[in-house]
Each structure stands twice: as C-alpha cells, then as structure tokens.
Design a protein around this nucleic acid. Sequence first.
RNA 1: GCGGGCGUCGCCAAGUGGUUAAGGCAGUGGCUUGUGGCGCCACCAUUCGGGGGUUCGAGUCCCCUCGCUCGCCCCA
Length: 442
Amino acid sequence: MKSLQSLRGMVDLLPAQTPVWQRIEATAREHFRRAAIEEIRTPLLEVTELFARGIGEATDVVGKEMYTFEDRGARSCTLRPEGTASVVRAAIQHGLVAQGPQRLWYGGPMFRYERPQAGRQRQFHQIGLEFLGFADPRSDVEAIAIAWDLLMDLGVGGLSLELNTLGTLDDRVRYRAELVRWLEQHRERLDPDSQQRLATNPLRILDSKNPDTQALLAGAPTLAEALADTSRERFEAVCTALERLAIPYVRNPRLVRGLDYYGHTAFEITSSQLGAQATVCGGGRYDGLVEQLGGPPTPAVGWALGMERLVLLLSQGRQEGAQAPRMAPSPDVYVVNRGTHGAACALDLARRCRQRATAPLAVQLDLSGAGFDKQIKRARRSGARWALLLGDEEAAAGQVRLMALEGDGVSHPADRLLSQAEFLSLGPEELDGLAGTPAGGA
RNA sequence: GCGGGCGUCGCCAAGUGGUUAAGGCAGUGGCUUGUGGCGCCACCAUUCGGGGGUUCGAGUCCCCUCGCUCGCCCCA
C-alpha cells in the first residue's frame, strides 16, 4: 500500500514545533485582553461572492489564488483567503456594527492557491485585528501600536515599520490617471509584468521589484503630490502620533497594498531576515468595505500577521543545535509498573494522581510492560521529576516507591516506600523533600 | 502559471558505471526476570522518489514523471 502525503502547501505542525505556536498565541491573546479587544470566530468557508466583492475582482488573490468549488447545492464556495471580509460580513450580519464601534481579533488558517516558498504555504495562519467604526487617526496608531508591541514582546528583532497613505478613492482615481498618462510615454522601458499592469492595476507598478522599472519610477509623479490636503493632514496626524509613542517607522511612498479595500493609512512590518516574503504584518484603513458589503457606512482599520513568518523569525538563531531541544511539556511523575496486580493498581493510581484535589500532577503511565530498568530509563528521558515504582509487592501492601529522577543518574538516592494514600496527599515540595535526600550519597 | 537547485533508512549522511549500498543519531531486543548514567552485543534500505532507456553491468549516464525547495508574480 502506497503511503499518502499531505497536499502541497499544507503542512503538519509536529509536537516539536507546536510550543512556539502556543507561545505566540498566548502572547497575542494577552495583548488583546489588555487592549480590550474581543475575539471573533468565523467559518473557514464562505460564499465566493463575499471575497470577490470585498477584496476586489481584479486582485491576484481573487483572480487566481482562491480555493473555490461548488457544494452539493451548486453554490460557489471559497475557503477564506484572508480574514477581514469574513469578520466584516459577520459584524454586519449580526448587527454588531449597528451596536457601535467594535474592537475585534481573530486567528486561524487561511487558504491561497500559490506555489509554496519560504514563508508561504497554501494553508497558512494569521492573527488579525479589526477596528470597526473608528475614524480617528489615533485608531490607526493604536492598531499599529498593538501589533508592534506584540512583536516586541515576543522578542522579534530587526523589524521595520513601513508606512504610506493611499489617500481617498478620489485621490487615487485622479492619481491613477496621471500615472498612466506618464507611464504610457515610457511604456517600452517597463518590464513585461508592469506593462500588463498598466491596464489592470497601474498603482501596483509602484512596488515592482524590477530595478529598471524602479529607476524609471524615480521620475514619475507621486501619489503624495496628488493627495488632497485633508488626506495629507490625516496622514501627518498618524505620523506625529507614532512619533509620540516612540514607534520608529519609515515612510515608503511605494507601498501599495494588493487588496482593493485599503485607503488612507497602509503599513507593513517587515524583517530583513525573512527572504523574499519579508512582510510579517500588514494592514491599513478600509473605510469603504463595510458599506461595500452591504452594511452602513463605517470607517475601519485592521491588520493581519502571518504566523508561519513569525515562527520562522522566532526559530532562527537556535537552529544550530543538532536536534532541536524538545520543548514538549514533561510530566511531573512517570509511573513505572510491573505485574498484573501492580499494573492494574498503577492505572488507577495514575488517574487519581491527575485528579488530586490539591495540586494535580501531570502523570505519564508506562504501558509497555517492559522490565523495571527499561521503564526507569524511559522515565528519565520523559523529563519527569519523580518516578513512581509499583509492582505486585507494593500494590499488595497499598504502597508505592518514590524515586527522584534529578541528577546524572550515577548516584542513587534511595527510594522512599510510602503508602499510596500518603503519596496522594503530599504536595510537590514535600515530595521533593522525601525523594530528594540521597540515602548515603554515592 | 514561469524559472533555478535538490531527491540514498524516521533524521543527518558516505557513495562520481563493476561483484555483498559506509557511518552517526533515534528506535527495538539483550548483557542486567524489580532499579537509573556510561559501556558492550544484536536487529534496523533485496534497495537508492517513481517509470522507461543506454550498458555485459547503474544509486551513479540519458529521457519522462512525481515530490521537495528557493525565486518570479502576489501577499501574511
């Protein structure tokens, strides 16, 4: 029988990697709690139209990256490629936006049909924040600050915050015409991709990675010049507020986000240590989206951060170690057992240990039926603090042997024989006191 | 969708056309029927991602295919 593999771009997270993810999730949760942001969970599957309308028909995400299929009722369904559209849909559907401003966060898998590469999978994970119903420039800054502080708290270094303003829809329409007019005159100097985009999405030519195109762009009209005064003032307000918070940023006039709903503030937090896909967190303002999806006019800002890219950053540095240190949670107690009576008794004792009213213990029960020596070896490797030895003799007497597992294993602290009832009543310190004293040294 | 690199045991990894595919780690059993580290012994790829071809002979050369990986596009 041929063994099966996961689908391309769908990765398994093995027990060795899972602790890093848990740490990120726990830290994010704590930061959201402190900022009074509530969690929202939405389905992974939505009606295709939600994304087509929300993200924009012309975008790459909608045009060629969606996992779309028909369900049994011939409805076109799509695995969510991002979180914002779903959150907005849910907020409208359940009248959240009507109840006032919402401070929401979400997390979970997203799906995009692309060729996998470093920092990019087909199923990937995001944690995101959405502020619905906030127009003040300070809301942009608070959103950014929460992302920044979260990343700092996680200990990610070498990050840079890039900031730009996309202005209003009017600003962009006006600028687009101007840019196209200018680029038309230099069409032959553009790379093929950019020539294509001249017709489909000219603004995106601005962040082309082609050096020749970038050189050409140096002389092109800029979006900043085309901005209305109010747009410009709004952006300055965001910048000064960031400065007051001492959050370093760089203005990047070429920063254009690929999703249609962004306007005014757009930002990315990038790392130079990530390779080609350098953006860890990206977001911006999307004042038109709620209305676009059938809700009342509602200003909004948000961002999403890519979990696997964050994990990549947090896992660097300690990749020298041959075998990554196993960070799996170790049990407190490893139960070594033998004999039919002993084994049966151990099963029961392990359970009662986990259910202790005071200080429940994490217990791993050896189920191998191997000899004591083998089991004790395994006990040491498990990382447990104590081993509990239980054979027929101890079981018959209602006792257990307690063994401290610390140390190099050369010196043999004596076991303590104690009654099972006593063992179950003792706290960790008392157990240490009992088992920790070597009887007679080496 | 388009380019580059790579595919030998769960992981790392020798092998560059000649009879039997090193080694290390991990794992399993034993030395040691109920006591720990270390050590020693044994077992652990009829087969080199898959298929076809060249050759007396291929893991080693050629073709196709699948997969992984990095990059382009785009994004988190």
